[in-house]
Design a protein around this nucleic acid. Sequence first.
DNA 1: CTCCAATGATTCGTAGTACGAATCAAAATA
DNA 2: TATTTTGATTCGTACTACGAATCATTGGAG
Lengths: 145, 145
Amino acid sequence: MTTTDPRADALVDAIGRLTFEAMGALTHLAGELDLSLTQLRVLGILRDRRMRMADLADYLGLERSTLSGLVSRAEKRGLVARAPGTGDGRAVDVYLTDVGQQALAAGLRDFAQAMDPLVSRLDEGEGATLLRLLARMFPDESLDR
Amino acid sequence: MTTTDPRADALVDAIGRLTFEAMGALTHLAGELDLSLTQLRVLGILRDRRMRMADLADYLGLERSTLSGLVSRAEKRGLVARAPGTGDGRAVDVYLTDVGQQALAAGLRDFAQAMDPLVSRLDEGEGATLLRLLARMFPDESLDR
DNA sequence: CTCCAATGATTCGTAGTACGAATCAAAATA
DNA sequence: TATTTTGATTCGTACTACGAATCATTGGAG
């Protein structure tokens, strides 16, 4: 299963299709919650962790300067908060406020609902297998975040 | 496998994690190609089909007015083209130009490369199983788009 | 220890993105 | 035929995204 493998190409394609479907749902549901897709992504990433600006920007695939403004606006709305990072005097950590947690919870609910038509095409055994395979792709993270 | 099923929650979570990972990669690689994530999404959706503005907007989860400008700018850059829709005199179809096809091809290459670290954690059998399960979630579409 | 380059973050200017309201033409319905 | 609905666009406004410039802290090199 490597990049040059034609079998992997089909798999990457299928992952892409799922991703596109999910992005459509996320974009739509973010709009309902008065969030941009990017803001929703920020909330989702910060779900269970506190992160440095630079790491968050890398994870989002955005420039640091973009993230600065993004976090400032989210902070102004009370969704996230900043705190001086540990160790490095320059670093800044970001984390969800209670309001942010609640907004995320609403987003997660809507996302589950939006994905239901897809997920419900699988029976229990298939669902369990899919979950196991996806978990194998993220070995470093616990399964139930 | 329905929304209220706790087993489905874990699965939706895993799908969400994969989606977030893929979005980070897509955002980053879109930037490299001088495209926004949304523009890349447009190209990906139009990969093998011609679509009406309204349908494309729905698929993206965006307002029609947003899509108008988006397509206009993409058109100006030569990535897509408009044509009067069939049947309805008001409708407008959008489709990829050759330039758009090439930009998409570059994006697909980069995406495969970005997903490789994840995909390569699966052996061949697992990859085949995952592909089969994902294909089952999109029954109406051919497997090798 | 003292410079000095590298790093983490921010601000600024500019172009692109996204929304809703308003508008217009074609289509569907009464 | 008159009316409403639908597909698409334009406009104004706020947000998003980038790169360049800036500032402070850090970590080495000498």
